[in-house]
Structures are given as C-alpha cells and as structure tokens.
Design a protein around this nucleic acid. Structure first.
Length: 158
DNA sequence: GCCAACGTTGGC
DNA sequence: GCCAACGTTGGC
C-alpha cells in the first residue's frame, strides 16, 4: 500500500464538497503537472489512503482522509473545450492527462494545520513541507503517515 | 497584494 | 539543447 497527500484549494473543491458527492466519491480531475500525473498513473492503486490537504485558505492543512477507489484513467475534462482544464493538444486517441477516483474515508473534527505539521520533527522530510513544493499530489511515507495520525485529536464519525 | 519558487514555453 | 520570459502556486 502506498500513501499519498492530495492538495486542493477549498474554494475550488473542498473535502466538504466531496462529502456531498454521490457515493462520497469524485474523479480527481484537473491535474496538469507531469510529475503528479505520473504518481497517479504509476503509483496509485485502489485502496491507497491519502490525506486531503486544503491550500490557499485561512488554515492550510490536512482536513481528512480519502482513499483511491479507481485507478488512473483519462481525465475527461482535457477533452472538454468548455472546461478550465481543457487541453487542446490532447486527444481521446492519445490522452495526455489521467485522473483517479477517490472516496471519502473521514473528515476530521479539526484540521492538522500546516503550522502543526511544521512543528513536528518526525515530518521534517515530508514533501508538502519542503521549500517551494507545488505538487498537488505527493507520496507520504508509512512513517509520516503514522506520525500524522499520531498528531490527531478527536475525530468525527464517517 | 507581495513575492519566492518552480514549471512551461518558445525563440534561437 | 539552452535559457530568458512568463504564468502559476501558495504561504504570509
């Protein structure tokens, strides 16, 4: 099992938005970075857990857990001229971008803020905390995964 | 709004 | 293939 962190701006798509989706699932569309795409294509398998991170918001941090519920497949928004994520250079015959589907596992009562993550020595090497990190999908080591869970306070139910 | 960091683009 | 210019990201 591999662990991941998925970053999203809550104004665009939040973990609460995910909770309202049918089946509490969504296609993780709109990834237009090759490194992040390759993580989905080559690394993510069904059942992999991932932290859901909110960026560009009052309290950046981890807000809950999702899991991969479908492996990489073409992101339909790349073919849609009306989509913000449209890529005119991509064709159904030679799709450039993929998405995975994720399903909500748990929304946390309180987020683990970026500040808290930064204050945790065990997370020093976590990808999201590295200088200049801009990847919307990053791997999380098993040790980092455990360390984050160990920081958690109360939780809400599923 | 600022600004550092980074990825992509395109001319050569 | 180089690299300057540009656009985007994201914390503050």
């Amino acid at each position: 099992v591999n662990h991941w962190l998925l970053k999203s701006e809550p104004d665009v798509f939040s973990i609460a938005d995910l909770a309202r989706r049918p089946g509490r699932s969504t296609g993780w569309e709109g990834v237009r970075n090759y490194q992040a795409r390759n993580f989905m294509r080559d690394g993510m398998t069904v059942g992999d857990p991932a932290f859901f991170y909110h960026s560009s918001c009052p309290v950046p941090g981890i807000y809950g857990v999702v899991e991969v519920s479908r492996g990489a497949h073409p992101d339909p928004t790349q073919f849609d001229p009306t989509s913000d994520y449209h890529d005119p250079k991509s064709t159904p015959e030679a799709p450039r971008w993929v998405q995975v589907a994720v399903t909500l596992v748990d929304i946390w009562d309180e987020p683990l803020s970026l500040t808290t993550l930064r204050d945790t020595p065990a997370l020093r090497d976590m990808a999201i905390l590295q200088r200049g990190n801009r990847l919307s999908i990053t791997p999380v080591t098993a040790a980092e995964w455990r360390a984050v869970l160990a920081l958690r306070g109360r939780r809400t139910g599923r």
